[in-house]
């Protein structure tokens, strides 16, 4: 097991927007087959971490490796589920179209969608219980249903690693249960999953590993070890005032560049 490269390895990662550091010196090694919850307060840099791993934000320092490769080569092994707001829900696509997008990574420029792809999309929709909505326009769904469609698309990607940004936002209790059980079964089939989550109460039951993040990595490890009063206090209670002050100071030095958001 140890001889294999980590699915996700982050080393001394520093990211800042307009000279304001958001992540600072983050180290992370995620082992294959873990179901990791990323928790931390709003603005802690959770989405930024995900985006940096996905090569959408360029770090100022440190590096990311995916299965031992550079992010550029590695991201195609990752199934990415963006935050729900990042999508144009008015767009003229049906639920089926969206799920089929999960297959696009496996097609070329002239690639046609094969029968097998369609069958696969069908099955994925069935797994998330949305098959009866296959021909609906995507904007006509409720928030929870949209999130299920996203999940179906991720399933259709057949990746070995998944990154999901807040898949439980705007989702009712039943859907949340469905999603969790699907995540667990994905883990059972050997996938590595990293899920951004903001609800402390449920985090303990959903994930087997937790990453506590607030600008710095506060802790990472198996849930029972990390989910302690002290560490949570450190993550949520009192911003790390001294530390963030120092970081801002350091950021004003010319040698630390501003992170460029790629293509935004």
């Amino acid at each position: 097991m140890n001889s294999l490269p980590y699915p996700i390895q982050v080393h001394d990662l520093t990211v800042s927007y307009q000279r304001k550091p958001v992540l600072y010196g983050v180290d992370l090694e995620i082992e294959a087959g873990s179901l990791v919850g990323v928790i931390g307060p709003n603005g802690a840099g959770k989405s930024t971490l995900i985006k940096t791993i996905m090569n959408m934000v360029r770090p100022n320092g440190g590096f990311v490796k995916i299965l031992g490769k550079s992010p550029k080569a590695g991201t195609k092994h990752i199934g990415y589920v963006p935050q729900r707001e990042s999508v144009d829900w008015e767009f003229p696509v049906t639920v089926m179209d969206v799920v089929l997008m999960g297959r696009y990574g496996h097609l070329g420029w002239f690639g046609r969608i094969s029968k097998a792809d369609k069958k696969m999309a069908h099955e994925c929709l069935e797994k998330v219980d949305m098959l009866s909505y296959a021909n609906r326009q995507i904007g006509n769904l409720s928030g929870g249903q949209q999130q299920r469609v996203f999940l179906a698309r991720a399933l259709a990607q057949e990746s070995s690693i998944y990154l999901m940004d807040e898949p439980f936002v705007g989702v009712d209790a039943v859907t949340e249960k469905t999603i969790v059980s699907i995540l667990k079964s994905m883990q059972q089939s050997g996938k590595t999953l990293v899920i951004v989550h903001h609800d402390l109460a449920t985090a303990k039951n959903y994930f087997d590993h937790l990453l506590l993040l607030n600008m710095r990595k506060i802790a990472y490890g198996p849930t029972p070890k990390v989910f302690t009063e002290e560490l949570l206090q450190k993550t949520y209670g009192g911003r790390l005032t001294v530390f963030s002050e120092m970081a801002s100071q350091a950021a004003k030095q010319p040698e630390i560049e501003t992170a460029k958001t790629i293509g935004e």
Binding site: K76, I78, D88, F91, M101, Y104, G105
Partner: peptide, 25 residues
């Protein structure tokens, strides 16, 4: 005709399209 699928996906979900290696820009 050639880029129909890519146009579809970049229009709908830009960050996802980048994640599967489409050169959206």
């Amino acid at each position: 005709l050639t880029a129909h699928k890519k146009l579809l996906i970049t229009g709908f979900d830009l960050s996802f399209s980048r994640s599967i290696g489409i050169r959206a820009d």
